[in-house]
């Protein structure tokens, strides 16, 4: 499997994926830095804003573009016929490509932190002692963003449509998730969408420790919060459900 993943990385050398994800990761921190400077926000506030919009809203769209390029590459270059005689199953290839997407997701998230740190230096409010913790959180958020996007990535792979259709599908999925996570406080804590969709789950876990709150505000948000263990169980379950679908999606289709 490791060889397959290395092969996938070798294939994308010319695609400038890494550069693309790093540039995309800088899109939100730039205006957020201006905003933080104007509102005299501290580094934690800037980091939270950039992370919320960058990882919850933009990253799933970036991952869908990367998925389209990675999975449709063989079809468009006509190199699929060369791969078929090699004793590597389509499922193994699909898992290798998903591993590449996971790495890109984490790179995006860490690059977002890098861009935010530059923003923090510019506004003159950076807490260097918090960087290791924020780096860890960025890596976890990159992983969770990838897992959150997994259902729509599987749909993109299976439907095998054009890039525009795939990105539209991912955008609608992301907007639904983001909207529910964004207006979490307007819904009752036991609302089905808050427990079913991945991004609201991440939000309910992250809101417990990631954001500084007044005691009144914390009391208001407390019924919505979930522990890390619950979040972990949810994503383990989501991954377990997605694995058979990945195998199904990667099976050859009749034209």
């Amino acid at each position: 499997m490791l060889n397959l993943i290395l092969c996938e990385f070798a294939k994308i050398k010319r695609q400038k994926f890494i550069l693309f994800s790093i540039l995309a990761a800088c899109l939100f921190p730039i205006p957020m830095t201006v905003l933080a400077g104007k509102d005299r926000m501290d580094f934690t506030g800037l980091f939270n804003l950039a992370l919320f919009f960058g990882d919850f809203l933009l990253l799933p769209c970036v991952l869908s573009i990367v998925t389209c390029i990675l999975f449709f590459m063989e079809r468009e270059n006509g190199s699929l016929k060369n791969l078929l005689p090699i004793p590597v199953s389509r499922t193994e290839m699909a898992f290798a490509k998903l591993a590449v997407i996971l790495v890109i997701s984490i790179i995006y998230s860490v690059a977002g932190l890098g861009a935010t740190m530059i923003g923090g230096v510019i506004i003159g409010s950076i807490y260097w002692h918090q960087i290791p913790a924020k780096l860890g959180l960025s890596v976890v958020m990159g992983l969770l963003a990838f897992l959150s996007t997994l259902p729509v990535l599987i749909a993109i792979i299976r439907l095998n449509k054009s890039a525009i259709f795939s990105i539209l599908l991912a955008a609608v999925y992301t907007l639904v998730n983001f909207s529910i996570a964004y207006m979490m406080g307007n819904l009752p804590p036991d609302h089905i969408l808050l427990s079913a969709l991945p991004e609201p789950i991440v939000m309910r876990w992250w809101a417990g420790f990631g954001v500084e709150r007044t005691p009144e505000n914390f009391e208001m948000i407390r019924p919505y919060l979930i522990s890390g263990a619950v979040c972990l169980r949810y994503f383990l379950l989501l991954t377990a459900i997605c694995i058979p679908f990945i195998i199904w999606a990667s099976r050859p289709q009749e034209d």
Partner: peptide, 21 residues
Amino acid sequence: FWAGVGIAFVYGICGTFAAGR
């Protein structure tokens, strides 16, 4: 234009911050 779509998306979202200030 794909890069433009990404930038336009962020451009739109940032409008919410501009309008609120």
